[in-house]
């Protein structure tokens, strides 16, 4: 190797970062020195190998830009603010983020039952009338993998990165909840709100509380924005209908 060509220069040459005169000097040295040429070729191959490293990586679900009539980023930003406020409130009220008694969360057993039987689940399309959830869930990296319509409730099961699971139950309200209510502990996260005459209940285990609060606030805003949506009503009515008495 010519003593005047340093490793720094050779690397910069490979990266195309040298001024023209200096690059010409390095190129001449490479042409005259086979070992230097071999070193430059090796750096080129390393650069190419790293450059293609992300080409075959499976890309995680990517948030889609807000579409016509859907959840605008500004609204999502408002949800962040709301989530932050709720988190502050939860954090500021002593005892408001307790270890939640299981008996106070009747849906938790259903959520746990789903977790116990959740194997490798493939992504499902959101059912008609529930598309309003898509921007929030997509932006949060949550994919619908379970959908179950029962006589009393509809259960949406979402899967996120690091195997986190989140349940959203939609049912007829048993009591009126004026606004978004959340109880967040490290172990269990729970949110509850009403919209359009239906009760929404969100449950997760071991999910980052900030992320959970953001998703809850986003969904609550989304459900409010669509409470007059005929599609949503039809979907909820279908899930809430009871079998005919014989």
């Amino acid at each position: 190797m010519t003593t005047t060509i340093t490793q720094c220069q050779l690397n910069a040459f490979v990266d195309g970062e040298l001024p023209a005169a200096e690059a010409a000097q390095v190129a001449a040295a490479i042409a005259a020195d086979p070992e230097l040429a071999q070193s430059a070729a090796r750096l080129h191959r390393i650069k190419a190998a790293l450059g293609s490293a992300c080409a075959d990586l499976p890309l995680p679900a990517t948030p889609q830009p807000a579409r016509r009539g859907s959840f605008a980023p500004a609204r999502l930003a408002a949800c962040f603010g709301l989530a932050a406020m709720v988190l502050l409130l939860v954090a500021s009220v002593p005892g408001s983020a307790p270890n939640l008694p299981v008996r106070e969360l009747p849906r938790l057993a259903h959520h746990d039952q789903w977790l116990a039987h959740a194997g490798a689940q493939t992504e499902l399309a959101l059912p008609a009338g529930a598309e309003w959830m898509e921007p929030v869930m997509s932006a949060s990296g949550l994919q619908l993998v379970h959908y179950e319509q029962g006589p009393e409730r509809t259960h949406f099961g979402f899967k996120g990165p690091n195997a986190c699971r989140l349940s959203l139950f939609v049912s007829a309200p048993d009591r009126i909840v004026a606004s978004l209510q959340m109880a967040l502990s490290d172990e269990i996260q729970h949110a509850h709100w009403h919209s359009g005459g239906y009760a929404f209940e969100m449950i997760a285990r071991d999910m980052a509380t900030a992320r959970f609060a953001t998703v809850a606030a986003g969904l609550q805003q989304g459900s409010r924005a669509h409470e007059d949506d005929a599609g949503l009503r039809v979907a909820l009515l279908q899930s809430a209908r009871l079998p005919c008495a014989s």
Partner: peptide, 19 residues
């Protein structure tokens, strides 16, 4: 890869909500 997916999602979320 799990942490990378989380970081990617959080970044996208931050970008999408940027004013």
């Amino acid at each position: 890869i799990g942490a990378a997916e989380d970081l990617y999602q959080d970044t996208m979320l931050r970008v999408m909500t940027a004013r």
